[in-house]
Write a protein that binds this DNA or RNA. Structure first.
Lengths: 227, 227
DNA sequence: TCCTCCCACAAAATCGATTTTTTTCGTTTT
DNA sequence: AAAACGAAAAAAATCGATTTTGTGGGAGGA
Protein backbone atom coordinates (compact mmCIF):
# COMPACT_ATOMS: atom_id res chain seq x y z
CA UNK A 1 0.00 0.00 0.00
CA UNK A 2 2.59 2.55 -0.92
CA UNK A 3 1.77 5.57 -3.04
CA UNK A 4 -0.09 3.48 -5.56
CA UNK A 5 -1.93 5.74 -7.93
CA UNK A 6 -5.43 4.51 -8.49
CA UNK A 7 -6.35 4.88 -12.10
CA UNK A 8 -9.55 6.90 -12.25
CA UNK A 9 -10.91 5.01 -15.23
CA UNK A 10 -9.54 1.54 -15.98
CA UNK A 11 -10.56 2.20 -19.57
CA UNK A 12 -12.54 -1.01 -19.98
CA UNK A 13 -12.55 -0.90 -23.72
CA UNK A 14 -12.56 -3.27 -26.61
CA UNK A 15 -11.18 -3.13 -30.10
CA UNK A 16 -14.64 -2.79 -31.56
CA UNK A 17 -15.42 0.20 -29.37
CA UNK A 18 -12.20 1.90 -30.36
CA UNK A 19 -13.03 1.27 -33.98
CA UNK A 20 -16.48 2.78 -33.57
CA UNK A 21 -14.89 6.00 -32.43
CA UNK A 22 -12.29 6.00 -35.18
CA UNK A 23 -14.79 5.26 -37.91
CA UNK A 24 -17.23 7.81 -36.55
CA UNK A 25 -14.54 10.45 -36.75
CA UNK A 26 -13.71 9.52 -40.32
CA UNK A 27 -17.35 9.78 -41.31
CA UNK A 28 -18.00 12.93 -39.31
CA UNK A 29 -15.12 14.79 -40.84
CA UNK A 30 -16.03 13.58 -44.29
CA UNK A 31 -12.95 11.45 -44.91
CA UNK A 32 -15.39 8.73 -45.79
CA UNK A 33 -17.73 10.39 -48.25
CA UNK A 34 -21.52 10.24 -47.84
CA UNK A 35 -22.93 7.45 -49.96
CA UNK A 36 -19.56 5.81 -50.55
CA UNK A 37 -19.18 2.08 -50.34
CA UNK A 38 -17.23 0.68 -47.43
CA UNK A 39 -15.02 -2.08 -48.72
CA UNK A 40 -14.44 -4.38 -45.78
CA UNK A 41 -11.15 -5.73 -47.08
CA UNK A 42 -9.69 -2.28 -47.56
CA UNK A 43 -10.99 -1.00 -44.24
CA UNK A 44 -9.62 -4.05 -42.50
CA UNK A 45 -6.21 -3.30 -43.90
CA UNK A 46 -6.43 0.43 -43.29
CA UNK A 47 -7.27 0.03 -39.62
CA UNK A 48 -5.15 -3.04 -39.05
CA UNK A 49 -7.89 -5.20 -37.58
CA UNK A 50 -9.77 -8.34 -38.42
CA UNK A 51 -13.21 -8.58 -39.92
CA UNK A 52 -15.09 -9.40 -36.72
CA UNK A 53 -14.49 -6.17 -34.81
CA UNK A 54 -14.79 -4.15 -38.00
CA UNK A 55 -18.17 -5.59 -38.78
CA UNK A 56 -19.31 -5.05 -35.23
CA UNK A 57 -18.15 -1.45 -35.27
CA UNK A 58 -20.01 -0.73 -38.49
CA UNK A 59 -23.10 -2.36 -37.10
CA UNK A 60 -22.95 -0.08 -34.12
CA UNK A 61 -22.64 2.95 -36.35
CA UNK A 62 -25.91 1.94 -37.89
CA UNK A 63 -27.59 2.93 -34.63
CA UNK A 64 -26.30 6.42 -35.11
CA UNK A 65 -27.50 6.51 -38.67
CA UNK A 66 -24.01 7.03 -40.03
CA UNK A 67 -23.83 3.87 -42.11
CA UNK A 68 -26.37 1.53 -43.65
CA UNK A 69 -26.15 -2.19 -44.31
CA UNK A 70 -27.69 -3.91 -47.30
CA UNK A 71 -27.85 -7.66 -47.22
CA UNK A 72 -25.24 -9.34 -49.38
CA UNK A 73 -23.73 -6.10 -50.57
CA UNK A 74 -22.18 -4.59 -47.57
CA UNK A 75 -22.07 -1.27 -45.85
CA UNK A 76 -22.18 2.26 -47.23
CA UNK A 77 -21.88 5.62 -45.58
CA UNK A 78 -25.35 7.10 -45.14
CA UNK A 79 -26.01 9.41 -48.08
CA UNK A 80 -26.99 13.02 -47.59
CA UNK A 81 -29.91 14.90 -49.08
CA UNK A 82 -31.81 18.11 -48.60
CA UNK A 83 -34.90 16.20 -47.47
CA UNK A 84 -32.94 14.22 -44.94
CA UNK A 85 -31.39 17.36 -43.51
CA UNK A 86 -34.78 19.04 -43.35
CA UNK A 87 -36.15 16.14 -41.35
CA UNK A 88 -33.17 16.07 -39.00
CA UNK A 89 -33.56 19.77 -38.27
CA UNK A 90 -37.29 19.46 -37.79
CA UNK A 91 -36.94 16.55 -35.41
CA UNK A 92 -34.15 18.22 -33.49
CA UNK A 93 -36.41 21.19 -32.87
CA UNK A 94 -39.25 18.96 -31.73
CA UNK A 95 -37.22 16.56 -29.62
CA UNK A 96 -34.78 18.99 -28.04
CA UNK A 97 -37.63 21.42 -27.47
CA UNK A 98 -39.50 18.78 -25.52
CA UNK A 99 -36.38 17.71 -23.67
CA UNK A 100 -35.43 21.22 -22.65
CA UNK A 101 -38.91 21.89 -21.33
CA UNK A 102 -38.74 18.80 -19.16
CA UNK A 103 -35.20 19.61 -18.06
CA UNK A 104 -36.20 23.09 -16.97
CA UNK A 105 -38.98 21.57 -14.96
CA UNK A 106 -36.90 18.92 -13.25
CA UNK A 107 -33.38 20.31 -13.17
CA UNK A 108 -31.74 21.07 -9.84
CA UNK A 109 -28.94 23.39 -8.80
CA UNK A 110 -26.21 20.88 -9.60
CA UNK A 111 -27.56 20.75 -13.12
CA UNK A 112 -27.41 24.53 -13.40
CA UNK A 113 -23.81 24.33 -12.32
CA UNK A 114 -22.99 21.73 -14.94
CA UNK A 115 -24.51 23.92 -17.64
CA UNK A 116 -22.41 26.89 -16.63
CA UNK A 117 -19.32 24.70 -16.54
CA UNK A 118 -20.04 23.33 -20.00
CA UNK A 119 -20.70 26.83 -21.30
CA UNK A 120 -17.41 28.03 -19.89
CA UNK A 121 -15.48 25.23 -21.51
CA UNK A 122 -17.22 25.89 -24.78
CA UNK A 123 -16.48 29.59 -24.77
CA UNK A 124 -12.84 28.94 -24.04
CA UNK A 125 -12.50 27.12 -27.34
CA UNK A 126 -11.57 29.40 -30.19
CA UNK A 127 -13.90 28.41 -32.96
CA UNK A 128 -12.13 30.35 -35.65
CA UNK A 129 -8.89 28.57 -35.00
CA UNK A 130 -7.07 26.85 -37.80
CA UNK A 131 -5.67 23.99 -35.78
CA UNK A 132 -7.43 20.70 -36.24
CA UNK A 133 -7.00 19.80 -32.59
CA UNK A 134 -8.60 23.05 -31.46
CA UNK A 135 -11.49 22.64 -33.86
CA UNK A 136 -11.96 19.16 -32.55
CA UNK A 137 -12.02 20.32 -28.95
CA UNK A 138 -14.67 22.88 -29.86
CA UNK A 139 -16.76 20.09 -31.38
CA UNK A 140 -16.46 18.05 -28.20
CA UNK A 141 -17.34 20.99 -25.97
CA UNK A 142 -20.23 21.97 -28.21
CA UNK A 143 -21.73 18.52 -28.14
CA UNK A 144 -21.25 18.34 -24.37
CA UNK A 145 -22.96 21.69 -23.87
CA UNK A 146 -26.03 20.72 -25.84
CA UNK A 147 -26.18 17.38 -24.06
CA UNK A 148 -25.97 19.09 -20.69
CA UNK A 149 -28.86 21.41 -21.46
CA UNK A 150 -31.22 18.45 -21.66
CA UNK A 151 -29.45 16.16 -19.22
CA UNK A 152 -32.02 16.82 -16.51
CA UNK A 153 -35.04 15.91 -18.61
CA UNK A 154 -35.30 12.54 -16.92
CA UNK A 155 -35.78 10.67 -20.18
CA UNK A 156 -32.81 8.52 -21.16
CA UNK A 157 -34.35 7.39 -24.43
CA UNK A 158 -35.15 10.92 -25.48
CA UNK A 159 -31.62 12.01 -24.67
CA UNK A 160 -30.32 9.21 -26.85
CA UNK A 161 -32.56 10.20 -29.73
CA UNK A 162 -31.40 13.80 -29.39
CA UNK A 163 -27.76 12.76 -29.34
CA UNK A 164 -28.23 10.71 -32.49
CA UNK A 165 -29.92 13.54 -34.34
CA UNK A 166 -27.31 15.98 -33.13
CA UNK A 167 -24.56 13.76 -34.50
CA UNK A 168 -26.31 13.53 -37.81
CA UNK A 169 -26.74 17.25 -38.23
CA UNK A 170 -23.16 17.77 -37.05
CA UNK A 171 -21.98 15.61 -39.90
CA UNK A 172 -23.71 17.88 -42.37
CA UNK A 173 -22.30 20.96 -40.72
CA UNK A 174 -18.78 19.65 -40.53
CA UNK A 175 -18.73 18.48 -44.11
CA UNK A 176 -20.57 21.30 -45.82
CA UNK A 177 -19.60 24.27 -43.70
CA UNK A 178 -15.99 23.15 -43.47
CA UNK A 179 -14.70 26.22 -45.20
CA UNK A 180 -17.24 28.72 -43.98
CA UNK A 181 -16.44 31.02 -41.10
CA UNK A 182 -18.59 30.26 -38.07
CA UNK A 183 -21.45 32.62 -37.34
CA UNK A 184 -20.44 35.54 -35.22
CA UNK A 185 -23.26 35.39 -32.73
CA UNK A 186 -23.17 31.69 -31.95
CA UNK A 187 -21.31 32.10 -28.64
CA UNK A 188 -23.79 34.77 -27.57
CA UNK A 189 -26.66 32.44 -28.39
CA UNK A 190 -25.18 29.68 -26.29
CA UNK A 191 -24.83 32.04 -23.38
CA UNK A 192 -28.36 33.33 -23.80
CA UNK A 193 -29.66 29.78 -23.95
CA UNK A 194 -27.82 28.74 -20.81
CA UNK A 195 -29.19 31.69 -18.85
CA UNK A 196 -32.73 31.31 -20.12
CA UNK A 197 -32.64 27.68 -19.08
CA UNK A 198 -31.19 28.33 -15.65
CA UNK A 199 -33.65 31.13 -14.99
CA UNK A 200 -36.47 28.82 -16.02
CA UNK A 201 -37.63 30.98 -18.87
CA UNK A 202 -39.04 28.03 -20.77
CA UNK A 203 -40.52 30.04 -23.61
CA UNK A 204 -37.30 31.96 -24.24
CA UNK A 205 -35.13 28.88 -24.04
CA UNK A 206 -37.25 26.98 -26.54
CA UNK A 207 -37.25 29.85 -28.95
CA UNK A 208 -33.51 30.45 -28.80
CA UNK A 209 -32.92 26.75 -29.24
CA UNK A 210 -35.21 26.59 -32.24
CA UNK A 211 -33.64 29.57 -33.91
CA UNK A 212 -30.18 28.22 -33.16
CA UNK A 213 -30.92 24.86 -34.75
CA UNK A 214 -32.85 26.20 -37.71
CA UNK A 215 -30.30 28.81 -38.67
CA UNK A 216 -27.55 26.22 -38.87
CA UNK A 217 -29.90 24.14 -40.98
CA UNK A 218 -30.47 26.97 -43.42
CA UNK A 219 -26.76 27.70 -43.64
CA UNK A 220 -26.11 24.12 -44.65
CA UNK A 221 -29.02 23.95 -47.09
CA UNK A 222 -27.59 27.01 -48.81
CA UNK A 223 -24.41 25.19 -49.78
CA UNK A 224 -25.84 21.67 -50.14
CA UNK A 225 -25.32 20.41 -53.70
CA UNK A 226 -28.64 20.09 -55.50
CA UNK A 227 -29.55 16.83 -57.14
CA UNK B 1 -39.71 -18.16 -71.64
CA UNK B 2 -42.09 -20.95 -70.82
CA UNK B 3 -44.42 -20.72 -67.87
CA UNK B 4 -41.61 -19.57 -65.61
CA UNK B 5 -43.02 -18.50 -62.30
CA UNK B 6 -41.47 -15.31 -61.15
CA UNK B 7 -40.71 -15.51 -57.47
CA UNK B 8 -42.46 -12.54 -55.84
CA UNK B 9 -39.66 -11.99 -53.34
CA UNK B 10 -36.19 -13.29 -54.20
CA UNK B 11 -35.65 -13.41 -50.44
CA UNK B 12 -32.28 -11.65 -50.49
CA UNK B 13 -31.51 -12.56 -46.95
CA UNK B 14 -28.56 -13.44 -44.85
CA UNK B 15 -28.08 -15.64 -41.82
CA UNK B 16 -27.65 -12.61 -39.58
CA UNK B 17 -30.90 -11.09 -40.75
CA UNK B 18 -32.74 -14.32 -40.11
CA UNK B 19 -31.23 -14.46 -36.67
CA UNK B 20 -32.33 -10.93 -35.91
CA UNK B 21 -35.91 -11.94 -36.54
CA UNK B 22 -35.63 -15.13 -34.52
CA UNK B 23 -33.98 -13.44 -31.58
CA UNK B 24 -36.43 -10.57 -31.68
CA UNK B 25 -39.28 -13.02 -31.44
CA UNK B 26 -37.70 -14.76 -28.49
CA UNK B 27 -37.26 -11.48 -26.68
CA UNK B 28 -40.65 -10.11 -27.62
CA UNK B 29 -42.51 -13.14 -26.38
CA UNK B 30 -40.44 -13.20 -23.23
CA UNK B 31 -38.66 -16.49 -23.85
CA UNK B 32 -35.51 -14.54 -23.16
CA UNK B 33 -36.26 -12.77 -19.91
CA UNK B 34 -35.71 -9.02 -19.47
CA UNK B 35 -32.35 -8.40 -17.86
CA UNK B 36 -31.08 -11.89 -18.46
CA UNK B 37 -27.58 -12.52 -19.69
CA UNK B 38 -27.12 -13.78 -23.21
CA UNK B 39 -24.48 -16.45 -23.19
CA UNK B 40 -22.99 -16.47 -26.64
CA UNK B 41 -21.83 -20.06 -26.47
CA UNK B 42 -25.24 -21.32 -25.49
CA UNK B 43 -27.04 -19.16 -28.03
CA UNK B 44 -24.67 -20.29 -30.73
CA UNK B 45 -25.53 -23.88 -29.97
CA UNK B 46 -29.25 -23.22 -29.58
CA UNK B 47 -29.55 -21.52 -32.96
CA UNK B 48 -26.99 -23.66 -34.72
CA UNK B 49 -24.87 -20.82 -36.02
CA UNK B 50 -21.40 -19.45 -35.59
CA UNK B 51 -20.37 -16.50 -33.48
CA UNK B 52 -20.04 -13.96 -36.28
CA UNK B 53 -23.66 -13.82 -37.42
CA UNK B 54 -24.87 -14.17 -33.85
CA UNK B 55 -22.85 -11.20 -32.71
CA UNK B 56 -24.02 -9.18 -35.67
CA UNK B 57 -27.64 -10.05 -34.99
CA UNK B 58 -27.36 -9.00 -31.37
CA UNK B 59 -25.70 -5.78 -32.39
CA UNK B 60 -28.59 -5.02 -34.68
CA UNK B 61 -31.05 -5.66 -31.89
CA UNK B 62 -29.31 -2.94 -29.96
CA UNK B 63 -30.76 -0.44 -32.40
CA UNK B 64 -34.21 -1.55 -31.37
CA UNK B 65 -33.34 -1.25 -27.72
CA UNK B 66 -34.02 -4.92 -27.11
CA UNK B 67 -30.52 -5.84 -25.96
CA UNK B 68 -27.57 -3.95 -24.53
CA UNK B 69 -23.86 -4.60 -24.89
CA UNK B 70 -21.34 -4.00 -22.16
CA UNK B 71 -17.70 -4.12 -23.14
CA UNK B 72 -15.95 -7.30 -22.12
CA UNK B 73 -19.00 -8.80 -20.53
CA UNK B 74 -21.37 -9.44 -23.29
CA UNK B 75 -24.97 -8.86 -24.10
CA UNK B 76 -28.04 -8.83 -21.93
CA UNK B 77 -31.70 -8.45 -22.68
CA UNK B 78 -32.77 -4.89 -21.94
CA UNK B 79 -34.25 -4.82 -18.45
CA UNK B 80 -37.72 -3.48 -17.78
CA UNK B 81 -38.81 -0.88 -15.26
CA UNK B 82 -41.78 1.31 -14.50
CA UNK B 83 -39.77 4.43 -15.35
CA UNK B 84 -38.67 3.01 -18.66
CA UNK B 85 -42.24 2.10 -19.59
CA UNK B 86 -43.45 5.54 -18.56
CA UNK B 87 -40.92 7.15 -20.87
CA UNK B 88 -41.76 4.85 -23.76
CA UNK B 89 -45.45 5.68 -23.44
CA UNK B 90 -44.77 9.36 -23.14
CA UNK B 91 -42.54 9.41 -26.20
CA UNK B 92 -44.94 7.31 -28.22
CA UNK B 93 -47.65 9.87 -27.56
CA UNK B 94 -45.38 12.73 -28.56
CA UNK B 95 -43.79 11.11 -31.60
CA UNK B 96 -46.80 9.32 -33.02
CA UNK B 97 -48.90 12.38 -32.33
CA UNK B 98 -46.54 14.48 -34.40
CA UNK B 99 -46.33 11.84 -37.10
CA UNK B 100 -50.07 11.42 -37.42
CA UNK B 101 -50.57 15.17 -37.71
CA UNK B 102 -48.08 15.31 -40.57
CA UNK B 103 -49.56 12.22 -42.19
CA UNK B 104 -53.04 13.69 -42.12
CA UNK B 105 -51.65 16.77 -43.78
CA UNK B 106 -49.73 15.00 -46.51
CA UNK B 107 -51.54 11.70 -47.03
CA UNK B 108 -53.25 10.99 -50.35
CA UNK B 109 -56.06 8.71 -51.38
CA UNK B 110 -53.81 5.71 -51.84
CA UNK B 111 -52.74 6.13 -48.25
CA UNK B 112 -56.35 6.19 -47.10
CA UNK B 113 -56.86 2.95 -48.97
CA UNK B 114 -53.87 1.32 -47.30
CA UNK B 115 -55.19 2.31 -43.89
CA UNK B 116 -58.57 0.73 -44.58
CA UNK B 117 -56.85 -2.39 -45.89
CA UNK B 118 -54.68 -2.63 -42.79
CA UNK B 119 -57.69 -2.06 -40.57
CA UNK B 120 -59.60 -4.79 -42.33
CA UNK B 121 -56.78 -7.26 -41.93
CA UNK B 122 -56.47 -6.35 -38.29
CA UNK B 123 -60.15 -6.78 -37.55
CA UNK B 124 -60.17 -10.16 -39.21
CA UNK B 125 -57.72 -11.47 -36.62
CA UNK B 126 -59.41 -12.91 -33.58
CA UNK B 127 -57.54 -11.39 -30.71
CA UNK B 128 -59.05 -13.62 -28.08
CA UNK B 129 -57.88 -16.74 -29.84
CA UNK B 130 -55.82 -19.32 -28.03
CA UNK B 131 -53.72 -20.37 -30.98
CA UNK B 132 -50.20 -19.00 -30.97
CA UNK B 133 -50.20 -18.59 -34.72
CA UNK B 134 -53.39 -16.55 -34.62
CA UNK B 135 -52.09 -14.37 -31.81
CA UNK B 136 -48.94 -13.83 -33.80
CA UNK B 137 -50.85 -12.81 -36.90
CA UNK B 138 -52.77 -10.28 -34.81
CA UNK B 139 -49.46 -8.84 -33.61
CA UNK B 140 -48.23 -8.50 -37.15
CA UNK B 141 -51.46 -6.89 -38.35
CA UNK B 142 -51.55 -4.57 -35.35
CA UNK B 143 -48.02 -3.35 -35.94
CA UNK B 144 -48.75 -2.91 -39.64
CA UNK B 145 -51.88 -0.88 -38.91
CA UNK B 146 -50.10 1.54 -36.62
CA UNK B 147 -47.24 1.86 -39.08
CA UNK B 148 -49.66 2.61 -41.88
CA UNK B 149 -51.37 5.38 -39.93
CA UNK B 150 -48.16 7.39 -39.96
CA UNK B 151 -46.71 6.11 -43.22
CA UNK B 152 -47.61 9.32 -45.04
CA UNK B 153 -45.88 11.66 -42.61
CA UNK B 154 -42.97 12.09 -44.98
CA UNK B 155 -40.37 11.60 -42.26
CA UNK B 156 -38.47 8.33 -42.53
CA UNK B 157 -36.45 8.93 -39.39
CA UNK B 158 -39.52 9.70 -37.34
CA UNK B 159 -41.21 6.57 -38.61
CA UNK B 160 -38.20 4.58 -37.55
CA UNK B 161 -38.24 6.10 -34.09
CA UNK B 162 -41.93 5.33 -33.77
CA UNK B 163 -41.41 1.75 -34.89
CA UNK B 164 -38.67 1.28 -32.31
CA UNK B 165 -40.78 2.66 -29.50
CA UNK B 166 -43.74 0.62 -30.63
CA UNK B 167 -41.65 -2.54 -30.49
CA UNK B 168 -40.46 -1.69 -27.04
CA UNK B 169 -43.91 -1.10 -25.62
CA UNK B 170 -45.15 -4.22 -27.41
CA UNK B 171 -42.58 -6.21 -25.53
CA UNK B 172 -44.01 -5.00 -22.24
CA UNK B 173 -47.54 -5.73 -23.34
CA UNK B 174 -46.78 -9.18 -24.64
CA UNK B 175 -44.84 -10.18 -21.55
CA UNK B 176 -46.93 -8.62 -18.84
CA UNK B 177 -50.41 -8.83 -20.31
CA UNK B 178 -49.87 -12.33 -21.62
CA UNK B 179 -52.60 -13.78 -19.49
CA UNK B 180 -54.97 -10.85 -19.46
CA UNK B 181 -57.92 -10.75 -21.82
CA UNK B 182 -57.59 -7.98 -24.37
CA UNK B 183 -59.67 -4.86 -23.83
CA UNK B 184 -63.09 -5.12 -25.34
CA UNK B 185 -63.14 -1.78 -27.10
CA UNK B 186 -59.75 -1.95 -28.77
CA UNK B 187 -61.10 -2.89 -32.21
CA UNK B 188 -63.60 -0.04 -32.00
CA UNK B 189 -60.79 2.35 -31.17
CA UNK B 190 -58.79 1.23 -34.17
CA UNK B 191 -61.75 1.79 -36.40
CA UNK B 192 -62.44 5.20 -34.91
CA UNK B 193 -58.81 6.16 -35.34
CA UNK B 194 -58.74 5.08 -38.97
CA UNK B 195 -61.83 7.09 -39.78
CA UNK B 196 -60.73 10.18 -37.91
CA UNK B 197 -57.46 10.08 -39.80
CA UNK B 198 -59.03 9.57 -43.20
CA UNK B 199 -61.57 12.31 -42.58
CA UNK B 200 -58.74 14.61 -41.57
CA UNK B 201 -60.06 15.21 -38.09
CA UNK B 202 -56.60 15.87 -36.70
CA UNK B 203 -57.71 16.76 -33.21
CA UNK B 204 -59.86 13.63 -32.84
CA UNK B 205 -57.19 11.36 -34.28
CA UNK B 206 -54.53 12.66 -31.90
CA UNK B 207 -56.79 12.26 -28.92
CA UNK B 208 -57.88 8.72 -29.76
CA UNK B 209 -54.27 7.79 -30.39
CA UNK B 210 -53.16 9.24 -27.09
CA UNK B 211 -55.89 7.53 -25.13
CA UNK B 212 -55.19 4.27 -26.92
CA UNK B 213 -51.49 4.36 -26.09
CA UNK B 214 -51.88 5.59 -22.53
CA UNK B 215 -54.53 3.08 -21.56
CA UNK B 216 -52.33 0.18 -22.63
CA UNK B 217 -49.55 1.78 -20.61
CA UNK B 218 -51.67 1.95 -17.49
CA UNK B 219 -52.81 -1.64 -17.93
CA UNK B 220 -49.20 -2.78 -18.01
CA UNK B 221 -48.13 -0.58 -15.11
CA UNK B 222 -50.88 -2.15 -13.04
CA UNK B 223 -49.32 -5.59 -13.26
CA UNK B 224 -45.66 -4.57 -13.49
CA UNK B 225 -43.73 -6.02 -10.56
CA UNK B 226 -42.62 -3.24 -8.20
CA UNK B 227 -39.00 -2.95 -7.23
C1' DT C 1 -25.81 -5.03 -83.37
C1' DC C 2 -27.97 -6.69 -79.46
C1' DC C 3 -29.04 -10.07 -76.16
C1' DT C 4 -28.08 -14.07 -73.23
C1' DC C 5 -25.33 -17.26 -70.93
C1' DC C 6 -21.25 -18.58 -68.58
C1' DC C 7 -16.93 -18.01 -66.34
C1' DA C 8 -13.48 -15.76 -63.57
C1' DC C 9 -12.93 -12.37 -60.12
C1' DA C 10 -14.10 -9.60 -56.08
C1' DA C 11 -16.51 -8.95 -52.08
C1' DA C 12 -19.49 -10.33 -48.31
C1' DA C 13 -20.78 -13.77 -45.07
C1' DT C 14 -19.71 -17.48 -42.24
C1' DC C 15 -16.99 -20.69 -39.73
C1' DG C 16 -13.58 -22.96 -36.42
C1' DA C 17 -9.74 -21.99 -33.69
C1' DT C 18 -6.94 -18.82 -30.79
C1' DT C 19 -6.15 -15.08 -27.65
C1' DT C 20 -7.79 -12.03 -23.71
C1' DT C 21 -10.49 -10.95 -20.11
C1' DT C 22 -13.71 -11.92 -16.53
C1' DT C 23 -15.70 -14.89 -13.22
C1' DT C 24 -15.57 -18.59 -9.93
C1' DC C 25 -14.05 -20.99 -6.11
C1' DG C 26 -11.05 -22.85 -2.96
C1' DT C 27 -7.23 -21.31 0.07
C1' DT C 28 -4.74 -18.22 2.86
C1' DT C 29 -4.16 -14.19 5.79
C1' DT C 30 -5.53 -10.85 9.24
C1' DA D 1 -15.31 -14.75 10.32
C1' DA D 2 -14.29 -11.50 6.80
C1' DA D 3 -11.26 -9.92 3.47
C1' DA D 4 -7.72 -10.91 0.13
C1' DC D 5 -5.44 -13.63 -2.99
C1' DG D 6 -4.59 -16.75 -6.94
C1' DA D 7 -5.14 -20.45 -10.01
C1' DA D 8 -8.60 -22.90 -12.83
C1' DA D 9 -12.67 -22.48 -15.61
C1' DA D 10 -15.82 -19.90 -18.41
C1' DA D 11 -16.94 -16.45 -21.41
C1' DA D 12 -16.01 -12.67 -24.57
C1' DA D 13 -13.22 -10.85 -28.21
C1' DT D 14 -10.42 -11.48 -32.05
C1' DC D 15 -8.21 -13.71 -35.81
C1' DG D 16 -7.25 -16.33 -40.26
C1' DA D 17 -9.28 -19.28 -43.47
C1' DT D 18 -13.34 -21.07 -46.00
C1' DT D 19 -17.73 -20.76 -48.18
C1' DT D 20 -21.24 -18.21 -50.44
C1' DT D 21 -22.92 -14.61 -53.19
C1' DG D 22 -22.76 -10.66 -56.35
C1' DT D 23 -20.32 -8.44 -60.43
C1' DG D 24 -18.23 -7.51 -64.79
C1' DG D 25 -16.72 -9.02 -69.18
C1' DG D 26 -16.38 -11.84 -73.08
C1' DA D 27 -17.96 -15.70 -76.15
C1' DG D 28 -21.71 -17.43 -78.69
C1' DG D 29 -26.17 -17.09 -80.89
C1' DA D 30 -30.21 -14.57 -82.87
Amino acid sequence: MSSTIITPAPAPTTLSSTLVARLRDSIMRGDLLPGSKLNLGRLRAAFGVSLSPLREALCRLENDGLVALIDQRGYRVTPVSAENLTEIIRLRVEFEGLAIKEAIEHGDVAWEGRILAALHQLNRCKRGSRSTAELESWEVAHRAFHAELISACGMPLLRQFCATLHDQSDRYRRIFLKKHPPDRDVPAEHTAMAHAVIERRTRDASKILRVHIERTGRNIQAVLPRK
